[in-house]
């Protein structure tokens, strides 16, 4: 069963999700993982859909064309291959951590923190940012869920990432994601 990535972005209006999902239902597609949210007044959809074996990119684009036109959406559809996780990255054994960053907005906060993360062999699982505050004093708030290699010392790696963030002039805290299975 082929799987496709689908992204759509347009000025936020009521009915976008209903319209996009309706076109997908009519084509017999199944919405798998999705992220949909408002970014600075634009509604952004990113999802993975599975479809019948006869469905191709052109079919999806044609089915979505009316809703894309109606809501003035920038739409992209791509056929996905099988996801292949890097064998050597130790991602399966990695441990989850949460990183919180906030401070005066400046260029390079995301790049600085994620570069420090990559240098530790860490991986971004989930990330969101919010630009808030006033136009004269903009504040950047970033929260990440990441994984860090289980060996040799994820706490030390997390501390190095925290220091790299602080070197950018923003406040940063890191803590392991702990959960109890009940």
């Amino acid at each position: 069963m082929p799987r496709f990535s689908l992204s759509a972005v347009g000025a936020d209006r009521p009915g976008i999700v209903a319209g996009v999902s309706g076109a997908l239902v009519d084509l017999g597609c199944n919405l798998e993982d999705s992220t949909m949210t408002i970014l600075q007044g634009y509604f952004a959809i990113l999802l993975v859909v599975s479809a019948g074996s006869s469905v191709g990119v052109g079919d999806l684009e044609a089915a979505l064309a009316p809703v894309a036109s109606r809501f003035d959406l920038v739409l992209t559809v791509r056929l996905l291959g099988d996801a292949q996780l890097p064998e050597s990255g130790g991602l399966a054994d990695a441990v989850p951590w949460t990183i919180a960053v906030h401070g005066a907005d400046r260029t390079g906060i995301v790049h600085g923190v994620t570069s420090a993360l990559a240098a530790e062999g860490g991986n971004v699982v989930d990330l969101s940012t919010h630009l808030v505050g006033s136009s004269g004093a903009p504040v950047y708030v970033m929260t990440l869920r990441v994984t860090l290699p289980a060996e040799p010392d994820p706490a030390a790696a997390a501390e190095r990432i925290r220091r790299a963030a602080e070197a950018l002039g923003v406040h940063c805290t890191v803590h392991p994601d702990e959960s109890d299975t009940l």
Binding site: G41, H102, S128, H130, V132, V141, T143, R145, H171
Partner: peptide
């Protein structure tokens, strides 16, 4: 201790704008 609630949230989906617009 110089900490805000932002430093305590369990992940990216636990921070919410008060007003979207």
């Amino acid at each position: 201790d110089g900490l805000l609630f932002l430093d305590r949230v369990p992940g990216p989906h636990s921070v919410f704008p008060r007003k979207v617009y």
